[in-house]
Design a protein around this nucleic acid. Structure first.
Lengths: 163, 163
DNA sequence: TTGGAATGTCAACAAGGCTGACTTAATTTG
DNA sequence: CAAATTAAGTCAGCCTTGTTGACATTCCAA
């Protein structure tokens, strides 16, 4: 980034920043709207979605890993996981090396719901990206990364390096 | 947007979209982290923040307006407003023309909390914008606007035209 | 003057956060 | 080997913030 660009950013008024803050608020609502509808049909909430999402992203992840990523207490996560296991969407296997650990996997049913949820979310995301154009998309991702807490960003970056 | 740009977007894999979805999730956490801390000190939550934010944005707004923007029930909003009024952060004035309406204003104390909250949020936003650069910033805003539900976008656009 | 709209309030409920205390099982460490 | 630590789960209780439904009040407008 050049000095000239830096300078121009100084002209971002508080009012413009306030608008960006509101955009974030309204956009997040849009972002969660479709999954929320699907989840509500099945008596689940966003907490279930988050668990399903990250188990799908990292099959075999442990409960502790999930806690760190989600930033909730184990009591809170446990409540959600229990219902997902009872309903046959998630499988909890005793750790092969360390038998205290539970490794989490989506069942076929769980993977089906995950697909439905992320299809809906991807469809909206893809539409927004198409309308905004590729330059906007890379700017979007750039800004989002810089908005994360460093700790959260680590979890985010971790996957990138996995591949 | 050219045909060539459209084409290149077709190469956005599901994996890339999944990463964008996660970025949105983690970034929103960062986005709310600072206000959440300030609010927690005072025994408030995000619901209070949202009310304070939109009353500050549109002083004198009615309860009904606020309901439409926030998308919650009046009972839910009322609980939050009541505590803000009791604590002397918000003033609820009987409507001058239609006395059924209540027009909402921040008191001095309320405005002070609003300033503290939005300063924290703007500081983070400004830092992210500075690191990402101006091109990224306009892309960011472009994509966010397209992610909103059309109804929500109306509320968002409304203010722009006010000025 | 009456119907409808805006507001407020009461009660009850649920999801999903939280804390604290405690158990069980297994691993690690001294 | 014994003790400490760790991973997970569980119970109880609390809070915020969302929901529905029922109902009262106030007041505008046809």
């Amino acid at each position: 980034m050049s000095d000239r660009d830096s300078e121009s950013l100084l002209f971002l008024t508080d009012e413009q920043l306030r608008r960006a803050i509101e955009a974030m608020f309204f956009a997040y609502r849009g972002f969660t709207a479709d999954p929320d509808r699907i989840l509500a049909e099945r008596g689940y909430g966003r907490a279930h979605h988050r668990a399903i999402h990250f188990i799908n992203r990292s099959p075999g992840t442990t409960v502790n890993n999930l806690l760190a990523i989600l930033g909730v207490t184990k009591q809170s996560l446990n409540r959600v996981l229990r219902s997902l296991v009872e309903d046959g969407l998630v499988e909890s296997r005793v750790g092969p090396r360390d038998r205290r650990e539970r490794h989490l996997y989506l069942t076929e049913t769980g993977a089906a719901l995950e697909a439905e949820l992320s299809d809906a979310q991807r469809t909206r995301m893809r539409a927004a990206f198409r309308e905004a154009g590729p330059t906007a998309v890379s700017g979007f991702r750039e800004v989002l990364e810089h908005m994360m807490d460093p700790d959260l960003r680590r979890h985010f970056a971790a996957v990138r390096e996995d591949r």
